[in-house]
Design a protein around this nucleic acid. Structure first.
Lengths: 197, 197
DNA sequence: TGACACCGTGCACGCGTGTGCACTAGGATA
DNA sequence: TATCCTAGTGCACACGCGTGCACGGTGTCA
């Protein structure tokens, strides 16, 4: 449906918009693709617009809205039998990391190594979304620095003592005593995993 | 450092940019806030720019780059002992749903009910990210419609017969025989979970 | 070989928009 | 009382940038 050059131009617009914060002008696109005439570019823009990849606002400078910019993943509420699956009626919102995990300020992600948290549904290779903070409530899943190693564990108190408890019966809780170099890096707010290849 | 009105204007610019795909002009901002003079707006813009909330490109239409637009979640590679945790050096990319799960076209998310997949690290309340398709390889985790109910299970073949296998020893595999109304909605490509409140 | 899409070039026109300069009016400060 | 800072108003200017119109090479398909 779209040829390579149209696709490249779409990608250019998206990258430009992400990098600079505003869309390019027709002439800027032309410059990037060695199209000296504005109408050469307009040809592609109208193509892309017909294909639904862009939404242009006429007579407006840089009025190229990239619809594909944040094409969020729809969350389906009910899935009824006969209904076409991506029907409007079953939408339940959109999945945007920002909306789920809140303000990304102070958040970071970490790839999990090892299987010490499998019983909490955190597998090796998963990304944990972590809110950076130095303290934690008992029972929270924390990312902690033990010596030089970052580890993901339940944070527990046993009287005065702190314990890092794995969620895997074949591992032992790790007591944190005076001598240990220990620091909470943050608490786990979410998990993201890709499955299959 | 910033007063309420400046903050509101920043929020307006961000919302406008997200909704329309391009930033507002000075005059559009003025209209929204009943500031009839362009210089009234410019006063705030220069404030915001000094505060590092905006990056303006002079002499460019709609040249208001919202730096806070896509503050993606950084993925940390190594976490060393002494190092400040959000240091540039430990960055390993950014977490964008698009980059992780690929083209959102044909993707949807579904909230998981029940604990039939806990041993695969899929808990009740998790969102599964599903690529819409009608077929699946044996061994894949699929979302299938059984009668009127959508369910998440392993897809298996036993000879000619199809089986939907849960990942929880206290559940039995569900045989899919001729009579059953059965349809694959898609295959699970990922899992997203929020933990703690 | 004529017609018609595809992919451009070139240019003038004119609204869209950022910028500079001059002024104002209330409140805080000294 | 004089002097700033804050938060605007108003206007003219000039470049930024989309649009319309006309025209020109390539295919390719009947």
């Amino acid at each position: 449906m779209l040829n390579d050059r149209a696709r490249a131009i779409l990608a250019f617009i998206q990258r430009f918009t992400r990098d600079r914060g505003f869309p390019p002008t027709i002439r800027e696109i032309g410059e990037a693709f060695n199209i000296s005439s504005t109408n050469g570019v307009r040809y592609y823009l109208s193509l892309l617009e017909k294909g639904g990849h862009l939404k242009r606002s006429s007579r407006i400078s840089r009025g190229i809205g990239t619809t594909t910019a944040g094409p969020a993943i729809p969350i389906l509420g009910r899935v009824a039998a006969g209904e076409p699956i991506l029907a409007e009626s079953s939408f339940d919102g959109a999945l945007e990391t920002e909306r789920i995990f809140g303000d990304p300020q102070g958040l970071f992600a970490l790839r999990v190594r090892g299987d010490s948290m499998v019983d909490a549904g955190i597998l090796a290779g998963d990304y944990v979304i972590v809110r950076q903070q130095e303290t934690a409530e008992p029972g929270a899943i924390v990312v902690a620095l033990l010596g030089t190693e970052a580890t993901v564990k339940f944070y527990q108190r046993r009287g005065e003592a702190i314990e890092l408890v794995p969620a895997n019966t074949s591992y032992q809780p790790i007591p944190v005593d005076e001598g240990t170099e220990f620091r909470i890096l943050g608490i786990v707010k979410g998990v993201i995993r890709t499955v299959g290849r």
